[in-house]
Design a protein around this nucleic acid. Structure first.
Lengths: 225, 225
DNA sequence: ATTGGCTTCAAACGTATGTTTAAAACAGAC
DNA sequence: GTCTGTTTTAAACATACGTTTGAAGCCAAT
């Protein structure tokens, strides 16, 4: 909580406000007044509002991507030459997120919401920044997913990965769910864990759904291409 | 395409720009210049920017919710006293969306993206408007889902429905996917159908995933609460 | 031809935004 | 204590926004 440093106070306030209201809807004046610093401080320390947004993401994402790469290293090593399973891959990602050291109680859920917003609000500069800075672990995750689902055609896998990302990003960015999570007085860490405990099986089952179900029910007006 | 009426030209332009850039990021000046109408026309015909947003949604959602209610009526009638299955319920929704008469080639995918944005960008007024105006068919869909998944606990069902909504809304609101869809020269209608053909089985499988998978793999640091 | 009700138009209004400025305050080194 | 570079501050800047205004244009009914 109590950092007296201006930069950190700005980052804390910005992180929270961005998560609550989105990027465009959060003004520098809201941020600086919440952080109790002068308006010009943002431009002095970060250069611009966009650079501040990048800094908010970098503060969490840089240590996280390091943790994730290490988790993938351990997983691949423990598997020998055969590729990790879908379940193992998903859990490696989940555990890396949960194990991240939290700045405060709301830590993870706030950042999950930010990640969801980053995906959804098509802010060109953010997308470019994230791809450039953290594209590597993401590509690696994709490669692991591919190796873990050899039974899927490329196009099936592409769409199902989209669905997975969607369920995850959306759940994390749902403000109602976030409110529920924050309301939960048993501590957020276990709440995020509980969501993950429910989400991962859902995703794994969806990824491994049988093609047979692709056919709509009898009498359907949706024709199979 | 070619409507000469000012109101429709504004709605068409707004619909497209909102889908491309989001609500806050689209200014009235962008809309009116794309629609080739005077800036003041929006406030004259709709009253405010928020009211324009509502009108964009109402133009699609009002006929859609009628179609959907009818589809649910038919489904429940054809099922007698036993409740419709999960697959039937999901397909009834999907087909209602696909069968909607399109204003132009991009029709459905644009509106799917708007629905995704509505859920994601936490615009208070929009959420309130949608709940108030179209809450009934949504509640009915929820009731059908509950009856179709009696094996799930209430909290499990709650979260899995969140995941379903997420996968759907996100996929539909993903601008990259949208671009792919629009690139597909075989016509958007079949593309949306193809996505639905892949999405519905994914969702159904996820909804019916077994609880046994709830336990993380051996050696996991995520403890079961 | 003139009226009266919509609709369009160019212009302006007030406000909020991100950013810049230049002076003041501060801190540590000498 | 004085100097030097960094940080903070209040004020202003330029721009973009949603909205309002009042005159002009239009078109059918009188």
């Amino acid at each position: 909580m109590a950092q007296s440093d201006t930069v950190d106070r700005i980052l804390d306030a910005a992180e929270e406000l961005f998560a609550e209201r989105g990027f465009s809807e959060t003004s520098l004046r809201m941020i600086t007044s919440k952080a109790k610093v002068n308006l010009a401080a943002v431009n002095y320390h970060f250069g611009s509002k966009n650079a501040l947004i990048h800094a908010v993401f970098a503060r969490f994402l840089t240590p996280f991507s390091a943790t994730l790469e290490q988790a993938f290293d351990e997983l691949e090593e423990s598997c020998g030459d055969q590729p990790p399973t879908l379940n193992q891959t998903l859990w490696a990602l989940t555990e890396s997120a949960v194990r991240m050291p939290q700045r405060n109680e709301k830590g993870i859920s706030i950042f999950m919401r930010l990640l969801g917003l980053a995906y959804t609000q098509s802010q060109g500069h953010l997308r470019k920044f994230l791809e450039q800075e953290y594209g590597d672990p993401f590509s690696r995750f994709m490669r692991l997913l591919k190796a873990a689902t050899p039974q899927l055609s490329a196009v099936d896998r592409y769409w199902r990965i989209q669905f997975m990302l969607g369920a995850t990003a959306f759940t994390m960015s749902s403000s109602d769910a976030l409110r529920d999570i924050l309301q939960n007085k048993t501590g957020v860490e276990t709440s995020v864990q509980e969501i993950a405990l429910r989400l991962v099986p859902f995703l794994a089952a969806g990824m491994q759904a049988e093609d047979a179900m692709l056919v709509p029910p009898k009498g359907s007006r949706v024709s199979v291409a």
